[in-house]
Design a binder for these strands. Structure first.
Length: 705
RNA sequence: GGACGGUUAGCUCAGUGGUAGAGCACUUCUUUGACGUAGAAGGGGUCGCAGGUUCAAAUCCUGCACCGUCCACCA
């Protein structure tokens, strides 16, 4: 015992992890009991792990280790996400920066090779980092959203939805990223505030306002509210000759209730091809659609002398011409509005009318609502349920086709105007597969069951689905959680999980949101090297309530490094002082330890404390459980109970009782602390035990061993 | 324009009706046989503002302010 170092050495953590992993107990096949399952949110293979990942790994590992110790057949299935658009945009950016090339210069095959090399490198690093966090997940079942098994699941899901009429191809207005040259879904659009110039233009007898004069070439409808008295003399359908940018056009008056009479002059012209709201007005009144800007942001022949110019360059010239023609009434320089951008590392969104694949969500809304409203799925914290309902109310058909190359290619083939959808290509020659790929969230939506071997009816699927807990950030409630519910309800007619635990975002010290694309991520591995994994885990858990953001401070982590050392030294004290206590098997037959009433009371309090911790863990209240454990160990056990045990140990009449009390206190607390601080607790346990703390039974009242 | 969250000690946050709490930071002391990554003691808050309910409000109600987030077809 003299050999135990005075300071806890966290550099032994990787060895402890090897011990766990080689034991086989990460794999539920080696466990018994009622299944308990969590699917790990697969990190994107776009970068390294950041502290947000460290947080979810910690939270899920706490639940998993707690479950395992309580005798559950525990499965935590790890994996990674190909993150189609995020990964592709990263590679494209690198390619352009390093070689001045675009993906089109390389070609589809060569480009994909590069992406795969990159993804593999990142994957290997991520997996190493997940291990370093102490995650007790089953590596034998690891999955990737783009591997063979998951690809089959994706094609199968697509076909089933296609056959059910839930997936259709339609020509509609979509969000076009003219930089990445692909569509993105409504949810991926990020609106950014911007101050711009707002132009008031003369349009015949009217004055219309626009922030985008370069889209106005084809405007031949002038729209106003039917009840606007200022324009009561103009009739719906009435035609007027007006002088416009490139000469005379015939304008048609349209009365539509969506026009806000309070805004500007109460009159507007519309550009149905490049504006979602205008598109709807045009649809309602059966108007013409004309494309003005191409996929690259270049003006088409309709722009006359401005054709073939990029909109950025053309705008000032167009304004100049309008001014020269006397059509420019005035300019409001401080007009604030929002511009749409692609949140996944792309560029400005330019609405376009395009033929794309969509998921018809109208019939799927009902089950999505019902599962949560009925309480079959519980969201923690509860306030997010309302946000979820509101999102579903506003949900429109989900555009799932992307014009990028990295991802699941759409399982549809064309030939002579015929369409064929299946999980395999048609046997006869001559069919050409749709070149588009699927939204990455389409494959993520299948995650709870694609990971278990679906569409095959595997034992794993029967055993572990629906999963118990889905733990993730509130920022992907819509992207991911909602889509999983949608997919699982339709394809399996079952919920994907019972409880959704939403954690907040870890922010940097300036409270800035960390994100993969912003590049302000903090490397948790650096923190681990200095303070140890247990310290980081505690720093991320204490004070972290579901749904609330948490700024990360190094001071806090340092405090828990000190706590790990405190645990180590308290253990050292106990172990050094119980050497002459007979082991449980050799007690009895005259060797029974008679507990003093004082020590009995301490153990009764321990029982009470244990059940409080258990209750908090059952309620997903990890922050308070961790805080309580910290206080109890340090300020009750170390400061008081250990100090008061010193004279008892010196008293031959009380010594054995104190020894038994101390070792019981220590072992129970090691078990309670283990889900939170697995490394230091296991390292201490290993000093005197041949088996693993990881699979000890969770302490319960009266069954203390 | 809607909705939600926050506003408590220098900092980060707990605390949902009954004499203000924790961690870190700060002050003083302890030269140490478990640990100085420690121990003991201590200072520090009119709990955003204004009303109201109550014997009693940080805690419930109303309004306001500021910060933050989400949603929404203001051309």
């Amino acid at each position: 015992m003299q050999g135990i170092p005075k300071t806890y050495d966290q550099s032994q953590e990787p060895n402890v992890y090897k011990l766990w992993e080689s034991s086989g107990y990460f794999n539920p096949d080696n466990l018994t009991g009622k299944p308990f399952t969590i699917m790990m949110p697969p990190p994107n293979v776009t970068g390294d792990l950041h502290v947000g990942h460290a947080l979810f790994l910690t939270l899920q590992d706490i639940m998993i280790r707690f479950g395992r110790m309580r005798g559950r057949k525990t499965l935590w299935l790890p994996g990674t996400d190909h993150a189609a658009i995020a990964t592709q945009s990263k590679i494209e950016a690198d390619l352009y920066k390093q070689e001045g090339k675009t993906r089109f210069n390389l070609g589809r095959e060569e480009f994909l090779k590069r992406v795969e090399v990159y993804a593999q490198t990142k994957h290997d690093n991520i997996v190493r980092q997940i291990r370093r966090m102490g995650a007790s997940c089953d590596w034998s079942r690891e999955a990737f959203t783009l591997d063979e098994q998951r690809s089959l699941a994706v094609r199968t899901a697509f076909k089933k939805m296609y056959d059910a009429g839930l997936i259709y191809r339609g020509k509609r207005i979509v969000n076009w990223d003219s930089k990445l040259k692909t569509t993105v879904s409504d949810d991926e659009v990020e609106w950014k505030d911007e101050t711009a110039s707002f132009y008031y233009l003369r349009y015949g007898p009217f004055v219309i306002g626009t922030a985008r004069p370069e889209t106005k070439f084809g405007d031949k409808y002038v729209v106003m509210h039917p009840k606007d008295k200022r324009y009561k003399n103009y009739k719906h359908g009435q035609k007027l000759e007006v002088e416009w940018i490139n000469g005379k056009v015939t304008a048609t008056v349209i009365k539509d209730e969506t026009v806000d009479p309070e805004f500007g002059t109460g009159v507007m012209t519309i550009t149905p091809w490049h504006d979602a709201a205008d598109f709807e007005i045009a649809q309602r009144h059966n108007l013409d659609f004309e494309q003005i800007i191409d996929d690259r942001g270049v003006l088409l022949p309709i722009a006359g002398e401005f054709a073939n110019q990029h909109i950025k360059k053309a705008r000032p010239l167009i304004v100049e011409k309008l001014k020269a023609k006397g059509l420019l009434e005035k300019i409001d320089e401080s007009y604030s509005h929002r511009v749409a951008t692609n949140s996944r590392g792309g560029g400005l969104i330019e609405p376009q009318i395009k033929e794309q694949w969509f998921v018809d969500v109208t019939t799927l809304k009902e089950p999505m609502l019902k599962t949560v409203k009925s309480g079959k799925i519980k969201i923690i914290p509860k306030r997010f349920e309302k946000i979820y309902f509101h999102w579903i109310d506003n949900l429109r058909d989900w555009c799932i086709s992307r014009q990028i190359w990295y991802g699941h290619q759409i399982p549809v083939w064309y030939k002579d105007g015929k369409t064929f959808c299946d999980t395999k290509p048609p046997a006869e020659p001559g069919w050409v597969q749709d070149p588009d790929t699927l939204d990455t969230w389409f494959s993520s939506g299948l995650w709870t069951f694609s990971t278990l071997g679906w569409p095959q009816e595997t034992t794993d699927l029967k055993t572990f689905h629906p999963t118990d807990v889905l733990e993730t950030g509130y920022d992907i409630l819509f992207f991911w959680v909602a889509r999983m519910i949608l997919m699982s309800e339709f394809l399996l007619d079952d919920i994907p999980f019972r409880t959704v635990y939403l954690h907040g975002l870890i922010r940097d010290k300036d409270r800035q949101k960390m994100s993969k694309t912003k590049g302000n991520v903090i490397d948790p591995l650096g923190i681990i090297d200095t303070y140890g994994t247990d310290a980081l885990r505690m720093g991320l858990i204490v004070g972290n309530l579901p749904g609330n953001d948490l700024p990360l401070s190094e001071d806090k982590v340092r405090g828990y490094r000190n706590f790990a050392n405190k645990v180590w030294n308290a253990a050292r004290f106990v172990l050094q002082n119980i050497i002459d206590l007979p082991s449980p098997s050799r007690r009895g037959a005259g060797g029974e330890v008679v507990m003093t009433s004082e020590d009995k009371k301490i153990l009764r309090d321990l029982d009470k404390f244990t059940s409080e911790i258990t209750k908090k863990l059952e309620k997903f209240d990890f922050a308070h459980a961790a805080e309580d454990l910290y206080h109890y160990f340090w300020h009750t056990f170390a400061d008081k109970i250990i100090e008061e045990s010193k004279p008892k140990l010196a008293d031959p009449k009380k010594r054995a009782s104190a020894q038994l009390m101390l070792t019981t206190m220590l072992e129970t607390q090691l078990k309670l602390l283990h889900p939170f601080m697995p490394f230091v607790t296991e390292a201490i346990w290993q000093l005197t035990h041949k088996d693993l703390l990881m699979i000890q039974s969770w302490p319960t009242k009266g069954k203390r061993k």
